[in-house]
């Protein structure tokens, strides 16, 4: 668990981060979103003390980070950045082994861990272990970067725009892979992004920052249906709101008894894609894999964010 308490960073008289407090529970993903200069990256870098806070403190599993020597703290926290930051003069295997090596693991343990991680990231160890980073594609470099961050089994992983350098097609796949991996490992994850779409796709909670302040910290649904102010609302984009809301849920949650004709869709399909399918096929009902249906009516209700919140208020 990460607790951030009243964290402030000042450079001279400019406050880059102003009194931010938030909490990321064990095994959760928190996405920090904001425009450039909003302080989101500085906030992230204060967690592993790449930037020293001016005021406030960070607790990791209840332990005050300022009481741990910075280099020892960083070896406990995974860190992956945009453009991967792999050491260009070290092989893929050596890159991944960086932190285990610093922690004096035995060679046997390190070799086994490197192969395990390469498998996990769908890179054949025999083929990739001894390659140099520049011999890999962008997507492969990014995966090795994350593998390096996870090598010593950290409980916390920090990511700064990890997918920023990837093209959109690979990025969507990388996001899906990360989600699956995070679920498997149970790592607590804090990810910085400027892309609201990415934040909604990945975050259990989203922190919206602007000019060093934390404007809102809540679930994606909270943000979509109850934005704290105009800035948060503009970041979400009013035209995209219903579709983003729909993208949070899968059709399995809306499944009803019934029969329908046509090809079935997977139960893990999100509502946004299901709606698109309805419109495209020109039907009101879609059959699901393994029986049951989802109706256009149910989809419409789910996308009605405003009405739902008003209903709750009344």
């Amino acid at each position: 668990m990460i607790q951030i308490e009243n964290l402030t960073k000042r450079y001279g008289s400019t406050e880059v981060v102003r009194g931010v407090s938030l909490r990321v529970r064990q095994g959760e993903i928190a996405a920090l979103v904001g425009t450039s200069g909003s302080g989101k990256t500085t906030l992230l870098r204060m967690i592993n003390r790449l930037v020293e806070p001016t005021e406030g403190r960070v607790l990791i599993d209840g332990e005050d980070a300022s009481g741990i020597q910075p280099h020892l703290l960083r070896r406990r926290i995974g860190y992956a950045i945009q453009g991967h930051g792999l050491f260009p003069h070290r092989t893929v295997g050596q890159n991944i082994a960086t932190v285990p090596h610093l922690l004096n693991w035995s060679n046997r343990e390190i070799d086994a861990r490197v192969d395990e991680l390469l498998h996990l990231f769908q890179l054949d160890p025999a083929q990739f272990r001894d390659r140099m980073p520049h011999e890999l594609s962008g997507g492969q470099q990014q995966r090795v970067g994350v593998a390096r961050a996870l090598a010593a089994r950290p409980e916390v992983l920090l990511m700064d725009e990890p997918f920023g350098a990837l093209d959109p097609v690979i990025r969507a796949k990388a996001q899906a892979d990360l989600l699956e991996l995070q679920k498997k490992l149970g790592t607590t994850l804090v990810i910085v992004t400027h892309d609201m779409e990415e934040a909604i796709a990945l975050g259990d909670h989203i922190a919206v920052m602007d000019k060093g302040r934390l404007l809102q910290y809540g679930t994606p649904k909270d943000l979509l249906t109850q934005p704290a102010d105009d800035f948060v609302e503009s970041l979400i984009g009013s035209a995209e709101r219903p579709f983003r809301l729909l993208s949070l849920t899968t059709v399995a949650d809306l499944a009803e008894q019934g029969e329908a004709t046509g090809a079935t869709i997977a139960r893990t399909t999100n509502l946004r894609d299901a709606l698109a399918e309805c419109l495209w096929r020109g039907v009101d009902v879609l059959p699901l894999d393994g029986g049951g249906v989802v109706t256009l009516n149910a989809l419409r209700t789910s996308g009605r964010g405003l009405a739902e919140t008003q209903g709750e208020v009344n």
């Binding site: 950045i81 260009p88 932190v99 610093l102």
Partner: peptide, 26 residues
Amino acid sequence: PPNVIEAARGVGLIRRQRLWSVELPL
């Protein structure tokens, strides 16, 4: 390359290690 140096700090290399194993080789 700034992101390589950032990564070297981020993984917990101390100054001396950064100089010998990253900066000088590059």
